[in-house]
Write a protein that binds this DNA or RNA. Structure first.
Lengths: 110, 110
DNA sequence: TATTTATATTGCAATATTACGATATAGATA
DNA sequence: TATCTATATCGTAATATTGCAATATAAATA
């Protein structure tokens, strides 16, 4: 169907999925990596950096922003983007949990 | 278009995106969480655990397996699944990098 | 071997995502 | 105010994802 049955899952599961999904595109990975590199930059810089048209970048930025992974502030007539700690903190615990589990798991699978 | 221009991005960016995308569905989050809880289990257990039909679960398991996040071994006529350390190790560095960056970033955005 | 049990695959409908040209909007500047 | 610059939104085409019924496959057991 193409429609995810979110109502059958917990809020936490849906939230983690939304965050991971937002990260799950190479352009959005590239945007995140670029923001780490330059700390903060305007949308136009990202358009110059990536091989995608301006409306496409704008759309990817919107998705990252909706997921709470980046934030943007007006700076003149441009918009300055940077990472949003809040979003990343929400996934942090999930991966730490997995890592702790995997490190302590002595017995091989099955 | 719906087609991701993966050829324009680095292998690392595409790989990270594939992993995050595989995690980006509540059912697959639930599967991962269940596998952490019970360490390993057969497909049928997951079908009983989640509110989705057997073919749908099978498809989600396939995606997690293709991404390298779980592995399955035959156990009689059933298949026993558990987490695959390899896949999770690949994303580990990415999030650690982000966390280190965010912890050290003193200056506010923009 | 026939049947049962467990999982995968096929086929398909509904919906979502990706990408971009065209256009709108909003602040800066001449 | 007219124009420029930067970004967002709209509309749309191409493709991908989600979900499941029906069916196939493969190992276990009667």
């Amino acid at each position: 169907m193409g429609i995810t049955k979110s109502e059958h899952f917990t809020d936490e599961q849906n939230e983690l999925a939304t965050l991971a999904k937002a990260i799950g595109h190479p352009a959005r990975i590239a945007i995140i990596q670029h923001l780490i590199k330059v700390n903060s930059c305007v949308c136009g810089d990202i358009v110059n950096e990536l091989p995608l048209a301006q409306p496409t970048i704008s759309q990817h930025l919107k998705e990252l922003k909706n997921a709470g992974l980046i934030k943007g502030n007006f700076e003149g007539n441009a918009i300055c983007y940077c990472l949003n700690e809040e979003g990343f903190n929400k996934i942090k615990g999930f991966f730490q949990h997995i890592n702790t589990y995997l490190e302590n798991k002595k017995n091989q699978c099955c």
